[in-house]
Amino acid sequence: MKRVLPIIVVLIAIVLVWYAAAIGMNAQWQSDVYRRANVTDVPFTQFAMDTWNQEKPVLPTAHQVFGELYNSTVLVAPNKPRSLLFHAWVTFSATALGFVMGSLLGIGLAVLIVHNEAMNRSLMPWIVASQTIPILALAPLIVVIGFNIFTGTLGIPTDPARLISKAIISAYLSFFPVAVGMVKGLRSPEAIQLDLMHTYNASANQTFWKLRWPAAVPYLFTSLKVGVAASLVGAIVGEMPTGAVAGLGARLLAGSYYSQTTQIWAALFAASILAALLVIAVGVVEKLVNRSMGARPA
């Protein structure tokens, strides 16, 4: 109860602010509607109710958004383009593929950097520089050019090509936290732990698998949590510039073309729910791994 209470208080505050803001932001349209219909002297309760239930409100209210979420998930078959689950799945598959690619790339770079001073000096500045380029500038390039190369030169069918293009953007965003975290993690063993391996005349391979890798695992999971959220952002951004018809990003874009604000908000909520589920999933794996590695219970 002690842990739930503060969350509920904040939630109530958010809902209050939300509904109050909806009155203000939708008021203009509502008064126009009344004027055209020659309705006057509307009581405030009626006015408030009307602003909360408009067809295309500037700010849709919570019950409208969750209603839309409900309508487009439970009431629609999940294989129909009307279903948010369909779009969420499209986005998730690109996210997952990109996350796996980015994590492997990040781990691989970290291993190179930790074991080779030349790699450390030459790669690290480029890794940092890669993240200074706005992804919004890069995404159309990767999606359009990548898609053309995949379908044209490589002869990959359009659906996998689109998936891979988006996954590359996800990987581009997620490899960075993993690489940086793993460099720190692989370097985390203390001097005497490394000396110990030296006294056993252990090979570099043995030192890596028996010392550096397990020592880096806590750092890995911290990075993966950041990386998986970044992957989702990458996948959504990758769905925007292509005129894609599927995915949460496409849904957001379509909503804004047709002023379907409720649909935009429903897609936004779906994206954040998906992000939360992904981070929780990584967290669950982390807990299981920690337990098997004898971590002291927190």
């Binding site: 000396d195 006294t199 056993y200 590695m293 004898g294």
Partner: peptide
Amino acid sequence: RQSRAYGYVFQAPALYPWRT
């Protein structure tokens, strides 16, 4: 060292925390 001629005990136990 290569013939594993000695065992070394450090100032700190230097046990690996992820191993029993």
